[in-house]
Simulated scan of single mutants.
Amino acid sequence: MLTGKQKRFLRSKAHHLTPIFQVGKGGVNENMIKQIADVLEARELIKVSILQNCDEDRDTVAEQLSRGAKAELVQVIGNTIVLYKESRENKQLVLPR
C-alpha cells in the first residue's frame, strides 16, 4: 500500500509519460493484463488511457487492471490511469519513505 507522499512522488514522475495502452470497446481482457504486467516489470510506472467507446466505468477498469497485474493504482484522472509496480529485475524508482 502506497502512502500519500509516495503517490505524490509517483504522480510527479508519471506527469511526463504518454499512455502506452488503450482500453477500448473490448474492455479489459487477460491478454491485456498480461502485457501490462510485463511492461510494469520493465518500466515500473505506466499510463493507460481509456477510450470514449469503452463500455465500462473508468474506476472499474482501473480496479481490474491493478488487481489483474498486481499493481498499485496511483491515480485516475480524466480517462487516464497511472499504475505502479516495483520491478524485481531492474528497479529504477526509489520511493520516499
Rank of each mutant, 00 (worst) to 15 (best):
33 I>K: 08
5 K>M: 15
5 K>F: 15
48 V>K: 00
41 E>K: 09
56 E>G: 00
6 Q>C: 04
83 L>H: 01
58 R>T: 08
46 I>P: 01
85 K>P: 11
97 R>G: 15
35 Q>E: 15
46 I>S: 02
49 S>V: 14
35 Q>D: 15
53 N>W: 03
3 T>S: 15
95 L>I: 10
67 R>N: 12
49 S>L: 11
32 M>A: 13
60 T>K: 09
34 K>W: 05
30 E>M: 07
64 Q>F: 00
60 T>L: 13
23 V>A: 02
77 I>W: 08
67 R>G: 07
39 V>Y: 01
78 G>P: 14
81 I>A: 04
12 S>R: 15
81 I>Q: 01
81 I>P: 02
80 T>V: 11
94 V>S: 13
16 H>K: 14
24 G>V: 11
45 L>Q: 04
90 N>E: 12
72 E>M: 06
74 V>D: 04
67 R>A: 14
56 E>Y: 01
4 G>W: 08
65 L>S: 02
71 A>S: 14
16 H>E: 15
81 I>S: 02
31 N>Q: 08
81 I>K: 01
70 K>G: 10
27 G>D: 12
86 E>G: 12
52 Q>E: 09
96 P>A: 05
10 L>S: 06
37 A>R: 13
30 E>V: 08
76 V>M: 04
48 V>H: 00
37 A>E: 13
37 A>H: 13
94 V>W: 10
83 L>P: 00
50 I>W: 00
24 G>E: 14
9 F>L: 11
30 E>I: 07
97 R>T: 13
28 V>N: 01
11 R>Y: 01
92 Q>H: 14
21 F>Q: 02
93 L>K: 05
57 D>M: 01
51 L>W: 05
5 K>A: 15
71 A>H: 00
13 K>A: 09
28 V>R: 00
7 K>C: 06
51 L>F: 06
62 A>E: 00
8 R>K: 10
47 K>E: 04
92 Q>N: 13
43 R>S: 11
95 L>P: 06
40 L>D: 03
20 I>R: 05
64 Q>T: 00
29 N>G: 08
36 I>P: 08
31 N>K: 08
41 E>W: 04
11 R>M: 10
33 I>T: 12
15 H>A: 13
13 K>T: 07
93 L>P: 03
5 K>E: 15
30 E>D: 11
11 R>D: 06
18 T>P: 04
15 H>N: 10
71 A>Q: 02
26 G>T: 10
54 C>Y: 01
27 G>Y: 03
80 T>N: 07
90 N>F: 11
28 V>T: 06
11 R>L: 03
31 N>M: 06
6 Q>L: 03
